[in-house]
Design a protein around this nucleic acid. Structure first.
Length: 526
RNA sequence: GGCCCCUUCGACUAGCGGUUUAGGUCACCACCCUUUCAAGGUGGCGGCACGGGUUCGAAUCCCGUAGGGGUCACCA
């Protein structure tokens, strides 16, 4: 028997990490059995429907690499894969139940139902539909329906006993039938509810394993009853633990308390491999204890038995750690560069030599956690207008003589490669008999404007002779143009002037760049 | 509140009756490395919710309690 799994997202907003999570496990289960993985769009709620959402959910699955074998985009033999296009199918199935007396039309208005619940509450009863609609004779139901009286269709459920099913992860689950009470299966707008559409579609799409979030456990008896009403065999049910907020009580993951948008993580520079690996460790573990693994690795080793049931907290720090691991170890350098490039371009940076980019990425790699960190930390590699703040100026001033010496010595250096530079600088430091830091820090600041960067020798090597000399020269100018003194007004004025100058330069550069054409810009993914 | 599910370090987890003085990872702390910041290395802190059973033996099995979550819609 072919294993068929599915995810059934509702297009009601941004692609949700929960969808990615459940998608990953459905994908892994199907693929580990050589089966199929389906994506079906559950757009039966016309109130919350968001037309942009479906596209973005589909795009996100592609970005993640969890390509469905069948979907609205890809099609398939059991389509359509959008529930709003399957209304006739649901209608037909509802009619079957109606004909067999397994369902009935109910005509209560919303106000009536509200009143019923109020009354139940007043009496201290649990609120719930009291099956009053069953009392309406079938011919009357038909007559009123024919007269276009608004109504829903409800499933007849047993009043006594219990509905039992097996959860693959939790064992037998039994829920008393009095908890169920004739649920609506067809809404008055002619759209099915989740329960009906879900069961019918899973059956017609040959789904064998229903892997979904824990929150569905209590409505599973409705689905079981529907399968029985249609005389269909049950699929395997497996209810995954719910991802949790990092709050005190670990409540169900929610937009209010956590960023739940996959797109948002994507825009923050999280790579799909890391997100998936992180998610794969939520409630699941490799038999050999490996924590870093690809989706393919997961597929190779997957089994439902290794799922643990405690609700895992979605820990941003751990996600970032996984991402950092991918960025600096697991992904090859050129791949990291390939992914960072569009973000850098979007940030207004440019370069001509591919090797230059690789060098920059290479030295920055150990100090980034996300792709966007590359943009934040690499400005001085692409932008000559270094801004020296007060702290920087102090550091420059402290090393003025070293800068002057080194400018001269570097200008005379014939071979401007790492080893030569390294030798030159170290010789100089020895000559002067000062601490390395006393020389390196002013140099670092002169070249980058900041006090934390990769190794200074790397900086010099990558930036190249011309740029290095120019920057040291300008730094010396800055020192000579006036040390920051104790006059705060003057200081503020200086800084404002300097900032304005840098800003103007940046704008000029960016205008130039736009004018040159930006057909390659791909950074602003949405 | 009724019903259902869950419960190993702050977080993610390994463990499926004896190999356990409960292992790993993140976070945190310390040290090492070091021209800064990182990265990396070493070490540390820290847990089987509680109470009963079953058993020669329980984190592992059973019951209860507590705690947490979910669900009770013409939303999925």
């Amino acid at each position: 028997m072919t294993v068929v799994t599915r995810i059934a997202p509702s297009p009601t907003g941004d692609p949700h990490v929960g969808t990615a999570y459940i998608g990953l496990f459905n994908y892994a289960l199907a693929k580990s059995h050589g089966g199929r993985f389906i994506l079906r769009v559950e757009d039966t709620d016309r109130e919350r429907y968001d037309p942009a959402s479906e596209e973005s959910i589909l795009d996100t699955m592609t970005w993640l690499g969890l390509e469905p074998d069948e979907s609205p985009r890809r099609g398939g033999s059991n389509g359509p894969y959008r529930q709003s296009e399957r209304l006739a199918i649901y209608r037909e199935h509802v009619d079957r139940l109606l004909d067999q007396g397994k369902a009935y039309r109910a005509f209560e208005t919303a106000a009536e139902l509200d009143e019923m619940r109020r009354e139940q509450k007043r009496r201290g009863q649990d609120p719930g539909y009291d099956a009053r609609g069953r009392a309406v004779p079938v011919d009357e139901q038909q007559r009123r329906a024919a007269a276009w009286e608004p109504h829903v269709v409800r499933l007849v459920t047993p009043e006594r006993g219990s509905t039992d099913f097996a959860d693959q992860l939790r064992g037998p689950i039994s829920i008393a039938n009095k908890e169920i009470r004739d649920p609506v299966i067809l809404k008055s707008d002619g759209f099915p509810t989740y329960h009906l559409a879900n069961v019918v579609d899973d059956r017609l799409m040959e789904v064998t394993h229903v892997v979904r979030a824990e929150e569905w456990i209590t409505s599973t008896p409705i689905h079981v009853l529907l399968y029985r009403a249609f005389d269909w065999p049950l699929p395997v049910f497996a209810h995954m633990p719910l991802l949790r907020n990092p709050d005190k009580n670990k409540t169900k993951i929610s937009k209010r308390k956590l960023d739940t948008s996959v797109d948002s993580y994507r825009n923050q520079g999280i790579v799909p491999e890391a997100l998936l690996n992180f998610l794969g460790n939520m409630g699941w573990s490799m038999p050999d204890g490996r924590e870093f693994f690809s989706v393919d690795d997961m597929v190779a080793m997957f089994s439902l038995e290794r799922i643990s049931l405690g609700g895992p907290v979605f820990d941003l720090k751990k996600l970032r750690h996984f991402n950092a691991k991918y960025l600096r170890e697991l992904l090859p350098l050129d791949e990291v560069a390939r992914r960072a490039a569009p973000l850098l371009r979007a940030g207004g940076y440019d370069w001509t030599e591919e090797d230059y980019l690789l060098d920059v990425i290479d030295v920055l790699q150990p100090r980034v956690e996300t792709l966007t960190d590359f943009v934040e930390q690499s400005g001085y590699f692409f932008d000559d207008s270094i801004f020296y703040d007060e702290d920087a100026r102090k550091r420059l001033a402290a090393g003025q003589s070293y800068l002057e010496d080194l400018e001269r010595e570097l200008s005379m250096l014939e071979f401007f490669d790492y080893d030569s530079i390294d030798e030159l600088v170290h010789d100089y430091v020895q000559e002067q008999s000062v601490g390395l830091g006393k020389v390196m820090m002013p140099l670092r600041v002169a070249l980058s404007g900041r006090s934390n960067t990769p190794s200074v020798i790397d900086l010099i090597t990558i930036l190249g002779k011309q740029t290095v000399l120019a920057r040291i020269g300008r730094a010396i100018q800055v020192i000579n143009s006036g040390l920051p003194d104790d006059n705060p007004q003057k200081k503020a004025q200086q800084e404002a002037q300097e900032k304005a100058r840098v800003k103007a330069e940046n704008e000029a550069r960016s205008r130039q760049k736009h004018a040159q054409g930006d057909s390659q810009k791909t950074g602003a993914s949405s």
